[in-house]
Simulated assay, not measured.
Amino acid sequence: MNWFFITLGYSGLFPKAPGTVGSLVALILGIPLSAYLGSQLMFTLTLLISAIAVKEINKYEQKSAVHDDKRIVIDELAGMWLALSIAPGVMLDFDNIFNYENGFVIQAILSFVFFRYFDIKKPSIIGRIDKKMTGGLGVMADDIVAGFAAGISSALVWQIILKLQQYFS
């Protein structure tokens, strides 16, 4: 169960770009969950999964003596789900997921793009966390901060899109 969990259903075992694959799996799982649960419950679920992940990653790192194994992608799930709980921040029913006016899918895609950018480039505090923190908390923390930044960024871009639409209509 531990390996299945920390590799996000073995998606981290993908030979090329396991972090991107894990993020995509997290997005695919997160869109319907976020629409069904709402942003507050999604946020709470993300925190719960993150706490469990820290413990499981610590156990893995003690056994393997490898810090931040690239096959561990549960941190991508935490970052993506945090971004999804911040950006779309609307309660939807499944019939309205693809309704353009609420911006849910657009913000979810923007969250994915921003999250991958922040997770790969690791600007500012994200990079410092990645380099200085150890153990499961170190593995999870940079992705959580990247998810927070991605959620805020996608929400801001969506607001700019809405303002531009008002301005040009």
Rank of each mutant, 00 (worst) to 15 (best):
M1C: 08
N2S: 14
F4D: 00
F4R: 00
F5R: 03
F5S: 04
I6M: 13
T7R: 10
G9L: 05
S11M: 01
L13P: 03
F14T: 14
P15G: 06
K16Q: 10
K16A: 12
K16H: 07
G22R: 04
G22S: 10
L24V: 14
L24Y: 09
L24I: 15
L27D: 07
L29N: 02
L29V: 08
S34N: 15
A35T: 06
G38A: 09
G38L: 06
L41V: 12
M42Q: 13
M42G: 04
F43I: 07
L45N: 01
L47P: 04
L48Q: 02
A51Y: 12
A53P: 02
A53K: 02
V54T: 07
V54F: 03
E56R: 04
E56G: 00
I57F: 13
I57Q: 13
Q62A: 13
K63T: 09
S64A: 12
A65H: 15
V66H: 11
D68N: 12
D68V: 07
D69P: 04
K70F: 02
K70D: 14
E76H: 04
E76V: 02
L77P: 01
W81P: 02
A83L: 03
I86V: 15
P88F: 11
G89V: 12
M91P: 00
M91A: 13
F98S: 11
N99A: 13
N99Q: 12
N99S: 12
Y100E: 11
E101L: 06
E101C: 01
G103W: 11
V105W: 01
I106F: 14
Q107D: 07
Q107V: 02
A108R: 09
S111W: 06
F112K: 05
F112D: 08
F112T: 05
F112Y: 13
F115H: 09
F115T: 07
F115E: 09
R116M: 10
F118R: 09
F118T: 09
D119L: 08
K121M: 15
P123C: 09
G127W: 06
G127L: 09
G127H: 07
K131I: 00
M133V: 03
G136L: 03
G138C: 05
V139L: 05
V139W: 04
M140D: 06
D142W: 05
F148R: 03
A150M: 08
S153F: 04
S153A: 15
S153V: 08
S154R: 11
A155C: 01
A155K: 15
A155V: 00
L156D: 12
L156A: 15
V157D: 01
W158S: 06
W158N: 10
I160A: 14
L162T: 12
K163N: 12
Y167K: 11
F168A: 13
S169D: 03
